[in-house]
Amino acid sequence: MSDLLSVDFMQRALIAALLVGTVAPMVGIFLVQRRLSLIGDGMGHVALAGVALGLVTGSAPVLTALVAAVTAAVVIELLRTRGRTNGDVALAVIFYGGIAGGVVIISRSPEGTPANLMKYLFGSILTTQRGDLYVFAGLAVLIAVTTWALRPRLFAVANDEEYARAVGIPVLPLNIVLAVLTATTVVVAMRVVGLLLISALMIVPNAASQLIARSFSSGLHWAIAFGLVSSVGGVALSYPLNTPSGGTIVLLAVGLFVVTAVVTSITSRLGGRRHAVAETHPHEHGAECGHPAVTHGDHVDYLHDGHLHAAHEGHYDEHGAPGGPADTHAPDTTTATTASTRGTRP
């Protein structure tokens, strides 16, 4: 490993991986929430045209890619809000126009070898330049700060756009900001992940985190953890294995998803066999049901005819008699108060 870190280009690639592994899932969770998982893929297509223009004109491909992707992001978001029927087709035209233009223009440029094209499409640990790194770091900080600052509102808009509009949250500007954040993430990730695989790093860590998360914030934290493990791990592995870094990163992310899916399904099956469902009753336990509320570990049980009922999905679980044998985490019965006098939740 110390060997790995001493190699110059590996240092740069690992730093780039750290940056992209952090920001890609942060932006991606809102794309998943808005059911736009594939939009990053299209922006990668357009960014290729920007890279190609940079190569032909001799300017920095990272900057031309940024301009192309951000412009496409704004146009796409405007089309999405305006177009009702043809919006989808317009997106396809932009995306395929982008990648086709990119491939053709690159082939005409002095550096336009097929090997070079492969590096842009699927990522390479060799290509991150020192100058790129400063740009990436600046952009990554910008993405992270913007996403963090706007997170409550981005969540509100992605959760219920109509409601957000009704209470006066500026929906279109926020959606454009999210599109620009996506485009910027695409550019930060273009060296190590590659333009065709960027979207995967925004989406797959979130797909895995959604399997274990119980809240939006825990979902976000898990997604960043998965993103970091796959991006840094993928870059580190691609050196000894001599594989394209982008493909290695995404395979690692998919592997994490599969392992998480298997583990969660096994644990939920075991848990499902263990838990006892209480008898059904027509009323719902709550502050006014008349049954005493009992604090039980991390939740509230209701004392129903001498045994504890705990809400679980659409039914009540039997949590046994207070202090009884079925009671695994021993509720503190001294805190039991009648529901009617219980002011606040514990």
Binding site: I29, V32, Q33, R34, R35, P152, F155, A156, N159, D160, Y163, A164, N206, Q210, A213, R214, S215, F216, S217, S218, G219
Partner: peptide
Amino acid sequence: SVRATAEEIVST
């Protein structure tokens, strides 16, 4: 589409 708690929704 993503997990969220009642509190997170109400907070919006």
